[in-house]
């Protein structure tokens, strides 16, 4: 899942980006309001984590513009402003969640995961495709009764496919939701990672979980 983090306090921005990446999220981050708006316009982010007091452009103005342009990214406001008026203003301008600094990182992660599930209309934090089980909260994967160890990137890829299980997912979609903006990966990196993933989760004696739809992309589970 791909996140945009707009936060001007460098230590917070860097530690959050690091923690979120370690939790298998693709994170683009910036400390400037104008630049943040530019990022938000250029990509279809699953969640935007937005500070309010920003140089360049105020967080609420960014939110207003993003919503006015019809962008559907979920927005979580992360700010030191804690008054009732601030919360109401933020939520009424189209934010989906509001967190006040300082906060527990685990809670932020849980809220971001909840927003991601809402993005894909999945309420259940456990996804099952054939006998493949994915625990979204703890990022663990089982095939039958056997647990499979995945790298963060592999997990992110599988999670995205699982969120859209039964749908055909294009390489561009995968690229946009699993890789960061300044990722140096080449264009066939998606195919390479699909290969890694298949090696780990497919069983030769069973029907494949990840199917290739020629010319269109991939699908997790049966093709529609």
């Amino acid at each position: 899942m791909r996140l945009l983090l707009i936060e001007d306090y460098r230590p917070l921005r860097e530690s959050l980006a690091k923690g979120l990446r370690e939790a298998s999220f693709a994170v683009d981050s910036t400390g400037d309001g104008q630049e943040g708006l530019w990022y938000a316009r250029g990509n279809d982010y699953d969640v935007i984590i937005l500070d309010l007091m920003l140089p360049g452009m105020d967080g609420l103005r960014i939110l207003k513009k993003v919503r006015a342009e019809g962008r559907q990214s979920h927005v979580l406001i992360l700010t030191a402003k804690d008054t009732l008026d601030d919360r109401v203003a933020g939520l009424d301008l189209g934010a989906d969640d509001y967190m006040v600094k300082p906060f527990a990182f685990r809670e932020l992660l849980a809220r971001v995961r909840a927003l991601v599930r809402r993005s894909y209309r999945t309420k259940n934090p456990h996804i099952e495709v054939q006998d493949l089980r994915i625990d979204l909260a703890n990022q663990r994967v089982w095939r039958g009764s056997e647990e499979i160890g995945l790298t963060p990137r592999e997990y992110a890829l599988l999670e995205y496919l699982a969120m859209r299980a039964g749908q055909v997912v294009s390489r561009t979609d995968i690229w946009e939701h699993v890789y960061e903006f300044n990722s140096s990966a080449s264009s066939n990196v998606v195919d390479v990672y699909i290969g890694y993933l298949r090696k780990k989760i497919e069983r030769p004696d069973q029907a494949p979980v990840i199917n290739t739809v020629r010319g269109r992309g991939y699908t997790l589970g049966a093709e529609p």
Partner: peptide, 21 residues
Amino acid sequence: AHELRTPLAGLRSTIEVTLVR
């Protein structure tokens, strides 16, 4: 309170993220 929250959030987040593993 507002001005102290931001660096506190940075401090807490830095420590918590580090302690994850």
